[in-house]
Simulated scan of single mutants.
Amino acid sequence: MDSQVQGDVSFIDLLQGDAEMDNSFLDESQQASMSIDHSQPQVVTARTKKPQRGTNFSTEEDKLLVSSWLNVGMDAVQGADQKHRQFWERVHKYFHEHKEFPSDRNYGSLMNRWSTIQKSVTKFTACLSQIEHLNQSGTTEHDKIQKAKCVFRSENNDVAFPFEHCWNLLKGEQKWLHHGNKDKRRRRSSMETSANVTHTPDSINEGEGDNVSHGNNVDFERPIGRKAEKANRKRKERPSEDVVEFMKKKTECLEEARVQGEEIIRLEKEKLQLEQKDREKIMDIELKKLHLQEFELQQKMDMERQKLQAEQMDREKIMDFERKRLHLQGLEREEKMDIERKKLQSEQLDREERTMILDTSKMTEVQQQYWKARQNEIKECQESRKST
């Protein structure tokens, strides 16, 4: 029996811890501790029957869940005196009323998913706070976030931060900041008293229904209550003379501001006109300067062109002179070659004539045959020259 009671207490403490993290907007002085009821079928079912795991949450579902938690929690009229279950039933209703994608998440699935998101985002916020406290110069906001991701990974068994899309929605919301500071104070108080207090089943205060205890040691400024919010709305619905006077003064201030604004605009226009005239004068001077530079450049180009033309003419004269000189040299070479050719021909004729009139009577028979053959060759050559 004692072991069963201890098991029920552990399960209820777990639910109580999640409820305290979720319902930071509730009035702490009106909440009581969750009671132990061994006859509750819900607790027995949760301990004995393990629910089947559904599909993973998508990014759109996470964002809508965070938006639902913020919107339901920040409703000043309805969000102050809610029980834990009532709060999550309203979150479940808001989720399914505003979804734009297929989803059949139930009450418990949304609550468990928020617990996972809350735990991970809280750890990442602590990592980012450590990086910001270092106050490193030259570090941008993006650099701090990247370093915080590295710290988160190193402190969570090399697991990356998976809920940056949720953190981006929560980081600037007053409800989340109030919730995070409140959770820090609760943990600090728990650490201070855990060494001296032993938790037993008898030490757990009994409450009613699903109310969740949040402790009484938080001195944060509580959000506006339901009655105050209703009173504010009634005052807005019934304008009084103070409101009329205020609107009159506001109208006068706006008119004065409009006149001042028009005067400022007029002065700005005059200033812009003067600046425009100065710019036009400067542009005119620069334009004249550019024209002058262009004229000087054109003159230089003309002079260079004339110089190149003169050099070209000189080169053409030199080349013409060289061509004539080479032509004369060729003629001289041809004349010399013609003279040499005629000289060789004359010598050839002289040798042939001497060969033809050579007396072979006193020669041997072999010599006579040789010279006879030579004479025949000469005759053939002479005939061939005559024919050509």
Rank of each mutant, 00 (worst) to 15 (best):
N232L: 13
K234Y: 06
R235D: 01
R235C: 00
E237G: 06
E237N: 04
S240E: 15
E241C: 07
D242E: 15
V243H: 15
E245G: 04
F246Q: 07
F246V: 02
M247S: 04
K249T: 12
K250Y: 14
T251F: 08
E252C: 07
C253L: 07
E255S: 09
E255V: 10
E262T: 12
E262L: 08
E263Q: 05
I264F: 01
R266G: 15
L267D: 11
E268C: 04
K269E: 05
K269R: 01
K271M: 12
K271V: 14
Q273K: 09
L274A: 08
E275A: 14
E275C: 04
K277L: 04
K277R: 15
R279M: 14
K281E: 05
I282H: 04
M283F: 15
K288R: 11
K289R: 13
L292I: 09
Q293N: 07
Q293T: 05
F295H: 11
Q299M: 09
Q299H: 08
M301F: 10
M301N: 09
M301Q: 12
D302R: 13
D302P: 06
R305Y: 10
Q306D: 02
L308T: 05
Q309N: 08
Q309M: 09
E311C: 03
D314S: 05
D314R: 03
D314H: 01
R315Q: 08
R315C: 07
R315N: 08
R315V: 15
E316K: 11
K317A: 10
M319N: 09
E322G: 02
R323E: 05
R325H: 06
L326G: 00
Q329G: 02
Q329T: 02
Q329A: 11
G330C: 01
G330W: 07
L331W: 03
R333V: 14
E334C: 07
D338R: 00
I339F: 01
E340Y: 05
R341N: 06
K342H: 00
L344Y: 03
L344W: 00
Q345P: 01
S346V: 05
Q348M: 13
D350F: 03
